[in-house]
Design a protein around this nucleic acid. Sequence first.
DNA 1: TTCATAGTTTGATCGTAGCCGAACTATTCA
DNA 2: TGAATAGTTCGGCTACGATCAAACTATGAA
Lengths: 228, 228
Amino acid sequence: MKEGPDISRIAALIGDPARANILTALMDGRALTASELAEEAGVGLSTASGHLSKLTEAALITPRKSGRHKYFHLTDAEVAAVLEALMGLAARTGATRVRTGPRDAQMQVARVCYNHLAGRMGVQMYSSLIGRGLVVEIGEDASLSDAGRTFAEQFGIDLKGLEKGRTRLCRTCLDWSERRNHLAGSLGRAMLDRMEEQGWMARVPGQRVIRVTRKGERAFEEMFGVVG
Amino acid sequence: MKEGPDISRIAALIGDPARANILTALMDGRALTASELAEEAGVGLSTASGHLSKLTEAALITPRKSGRHKYFHLTDAEVAAVLEALMGLAARTGATRVRTGPRDAQMQVARVCYNHLAGRMGVQMYSSLIGRGLVVEIGEDASLSDAGRTFAEQFGIDLKGLEKGRTRLCRTCLDWSERRNHLAGSLGRAMLDRMEEQGWMARVPGQRVIRVTRKGERAFEEMFGVVG
DNA sequence: TTCATAGTTTGATCGTAGCCGAACTATTCA
DNA sequence: TGAATAGTTCGGCTACGATCAAACTATGAA
């Protein structure tokens, strides 16, 4: 039959362990150099260089030259979403990598998904926004209601500024650990940034884990907590 | 870093062209046999068999045995969603494929599935029996209610005779064109035989197509037609 | 300049995994 | 019952691609 786009090329690209490691390492939205990625992937620099050029050609990652370094990052949130979705499938068959370490437990509470909040708290925030009618889900996308716009602006987010960008304001992203949607898009990113600014939470450098402060716990629960 | 589930196994599985073809062919939700999938994938039956067992082990597809056939379908909508997402990524870099024509229309109306009625009419009959409480579905199997026994005997079927055989009276069978269950088992066979005896329909020799007479159309509609 | 570091390209090696045909099992048909 | 069809398993062949080291280019530092 062979209808539709050919998925095998892209999937095969992700299917190599070294390349999968590279992509996974980029899942926190940072940009890493070729050497760093070679280290992450556990291969030599020359091998990594080959992988990186293939991934770049397929537009999964995008390079940025800076002096004699070359930084790579995931091309956009859609790539990240596909990787998350694949993690979801992998997690179902119990193909979690070796053993689940202590870091995994933290990741399930709060982690960075590309540039927005994921994990239990990400899902909780999203379902709270939905439940209060601030965000309306439309298929895979979502949009902000009037009440939602007011809420976001009161939270300190420059909606008009975000809407100037080319990325969609609201997107949904399937959370692999919670198996439910959380908020992505430029608003998702801005929400996480704002919560960091307010000292609610802080990313742990070099990891996807997000550390939540005690103040953040209280404030988050007050704002997005489950209503009796 | 290597955090989270290992995506490379799943992605590598999808990354082989033959397996990608198999998965793509199943994207519409139908269940296909191993032979059909081998044809779709463009490989031999033995090769396809190997692929199918790998995909099954990873829970991307789920097999269902039906007589000497084995039908495979995508495990659930989440798998389909991931494939869709991958197609989205693939389409961005411009790797699309050719489309092929529709399938045989007659087969979709009525055909033999081993020895029982399949296609639109087979599914219609089954859902009518279920809807009127004559047959009760229990997982993949089914059983005849008391009212169902009366109905079958009035239809001219020797239930006691059937029950002497070793094959189950009622089985369900997944219809590939309709994607829904129809009636199999010795009762399914007897029903088709009886309908042929009564001149409602006739098998076309050497084909799976069943020709339905005008009389048969009327009688079938009266007996299994949708109740307004 | 000259040296050092970051990354790319090339060529050779080597494993793995896809492929087929043939033999085998299971189920149906006649 | 024997013949035909659907699917699985096994053994051997082959090819693709991941890998590394070494040579090469590019940028920055001394």
